[in-house]
Computed example of a mutant assay.
Amino acid sequence: MWSLWSSRNDRRHGKAPIEKVTAINWALDICFHLTSPNKSAEDPKVPPLVPRWQRPPGNTLKVNIDGAFDAEEESGAIGAVVRDAEGGFLMATTRWLPDVGSALAAEAEAPCAGVQLIYTVTEGPVMMKTDSLELVSLWNNRGSHKSEFAPIFGDV
């Protein structure tokens, strides 16, 4: 499912999508390898697994956020997932954006969803992760460079 979702997200962000049949075959292949009892990590035929998600420092919650955009419909969606320092799932949310103007606008709405998730469960350290370098740049320069997303950043 992640492969299909990632392909849809790539397509909506202007990247070349993964063919659906290829994505399904990839997922089936991964399931086969994960359930195969005879494969060892030292087997030279099996490439080592590269961790994609990294744990936050101890006692820190990690919030992964993302936004999606459909240019034809001028709509989008956002999502956020919260995990603890051990990688355990705590909570998640999604929200439909019926009227959004760009992929960056959808990405800019995602931190709000992440903050709304965590504000009731912790007052401790929180790490937020996004795949949008443009959003990170706008956030890091929010004090010196005003953008159209300044009100959203103020809410965060």
Rank of each mutant, 00 (worst) to 15 (best):
D66G: 15
D66R: 14
D66T: 02
D66E: 10
G67A: 15
A68N: 09
A68F: 07
A68L: 09
A68C: 09
F69A: 11
D70E: 08
D70T: 13
A71C: 08
A71T: 02
E72F: 08
E72N: 12
E72L: 10
E72R: 14
E74K: 12
E74Y: 03
E74H: 09
G76D: 06
A77W: 04
A77I: 00
A77H: 02
G79A: 10
A80Y: 13
A80D: 05
A80S: 12
A80G: 06
V82N: 10
V82R: 13
V82H: 07
R83C: 15
R83M: 08
D84F: 06
D84E: 03
D84N: 08
A85L: 00
E86W: 02
E86L: 06
G88S: 04
F89E: 03
L90F: 01
L90Q: 10
M91H: 07
M91P: 02
M91G: 02
A92Y: 06
A92W: 07
A92L: 02
A92F: 02
T93F: 00
T93W: 00
T93Q: 01
R95M: 15
R95W: 11
R95Y: 07
W96H: 14
W96L: 03
W96C: 05
W96T: 04
P98C: 09
P98I: 00
P98A: 06
D99N: 14
D99V: 00
V100C: 15
V100Y: 11
V100K: 11
G101C: 13
G101W: 05
S102N: 08
S102C: 15
L104V: 12
A105E: 15
A105H: 12
A105K: 05
A106D: 00
A106V: 14
A106Y: 06
E107N: 12
A108G: 10
A108H: 14
E109A: 13
E109G: 04
E109S: 14
E109Q: 13
A110Q: 09
P111M: 09
P111L: 08
C112T: 12
A113N: 08
A113W: 11
A113Y: 10
G114N: 08
G114P: 04
V115H: 05
V115N: 02
V115W: 05
Q116I: 04
Q116A: 11
Q116V: 08
L117Q: 02
L117D: 01
L117Y: 08
L117S: 08
I118Q: 03
Y119L: 05
Y119N: 11
Y119P: 01
